[in-house]
């Protein structure tokens, strides 16, 4: 049986207590929420914290509150809870949909929103046991020096595999981070860096305390996920598309890809090319093309990389077509 290494498990009930525990533990300490990302990694010795500090007992990190200016979600809400909350589903169907596409029903009963947003980057040279990684002499993300995906590269190419993160970036969510030295609020995209090892800009002491979603007025978003099976699998491509409608035309748009880079990859050109259009076939094709070009899948996930790149165009197109269809169906004269 694959087992966890020995460690100390702490269950603080306040943020202050959590920070103190983290400060005591130093670099050997790690925060955990649902554990569905950290514990497998610990079993495979990809991460080896000596002190694990659970955030699940801190009341202010839980819950989901609908406000006039949007919605504030506690990061420790489980993906199941988030995706079935009726008010949330109604207002943020793309987020709820992304959450319910994560892994399996069993895992979503444990895994949290915050956990999915901070999900460790993935790579099939890295998400392996210690013994397996030893057989390839390890990789730079853990215990080694080289990135096997691109051996001449100075950086790690592990893949951002969150389903919810691309949606958060696309819809313009904000994250509130709190640490012992204060707090900061940042646009979702700023949490991420395109580096497989340092993929979060969050300081290790900081805790993701709130996810703030913009009020659902005038914009729409969808999330489309490509994977081998209808459950279990991480995205090999995620397409989050957001459109701010101005009447029949597009005031602003964003396309964010998951599973193709070490961060949720915003395709700026894809968004700008849609602006001012009414999401015609031509506009969709241009945007899909714009998304296709920078998408750079590598050989470290399921499926052939060239096919995954080809699929960017197809999935961006179907995502935008769905948005257009939804617009048409909601604007039908009564």
């Amino acid at each position: 049986m694959l087992r966890l290494p020995s460690f100390t498990y702490l269950q603080p009930s306040t943020l202050a207590e959590a920070w103190r525990m983290k400060a005591d533990a130093g670099p050997d300490g790690a925060f955990v929420a649902g554990g569905t990302d950290l514990y497998p990694n610990m079993k495979r010795r990809q991460q080896e914290p000596k002190v694990v500090i659970s955030l699940m007992g801190i009341p202010e990190l839980a819950g989901c509150e609908m406000r006039d200016a949007g919605c504030v979600v506690g990061p420790c809400i489980t993906l199941s809870e988030l995706s079935i909350l009726p008010s949330f589903r109604r207002s943020y169907p793309a987020v709820a949909h992304a959450a319910e596409l994560v892994s399996t029903p069993l895992l979503r009963n444990m895994g949290t929103l915050g956990g999915n947003l901070c999900l460790d980057t993935r790579c099939n040279y890295y998400d392996q046991t210690y013994e397996w990684r030893k057989a390839i002499d390890f990789c730079m993300k853990k215990d080694g020096k080289i990135c096997w995906v691109a051996p001449s590269s100075p950086r790690c190419w592990a893949v951002s595999s969150s389903d919810v993160a691309p949606v958060m970036v696309a819809i313009g969510a904000e994250f509130r981070l709190v640490g012992p030295k204060g707090e900061r609020v940042m646009p979702a995209g700023r949490l991420y860096a395109n580096d497989g090892i340092n993929y979060l800009t969050k300081h290790p002491d900081e805790i993701l305390a709130e996810v703030r979603l913009p009020a659902p007025d005038g914009w729409d978003a969808v999330y489309h996920k490509l994977r081998r099976r209808g459950s279990f699998d991480f995205p090999v491509l995620g397409v989050a598309a957001w459109i701010d409608w101005d009447g029949a035309d597009i005031a602003d748009a964003r396309i964010v890809l998951g599973g193709v880079a070490s961060w949720p990859q915003e395709v700026a050109e894809g968004g700008t090319t849609l602006k001012g259009t009414d999401l015609s076939d031509e506009a969709i094709a241009r945007a899909a093309d714009a998304a296709y070009r920078p998408a750079k899948p590598l050989d470290n996930t399921d499926f052939d990389l060239s096919w995954r790149k080809q699929m960017t165009r197809v999935y961006v197109k179907t995502a935008l077509e769905e948005l257009r269809e939804r617009r048409r169906s909601t604007r039908k004269p009564s």
Binding site: Y9, G34, T36, Y39, L106, L107, N109
Partner: peptide, 13 residues
């Protein structure tokens, strides 16, 4: 009452 993966739940939790 919720089905979870007992391999990823700490006993202490």
């Amino acid at each position: 009452a919720r089905p979870v993966l007992s391999c990823l739940v700490l006993g202490l939790a």
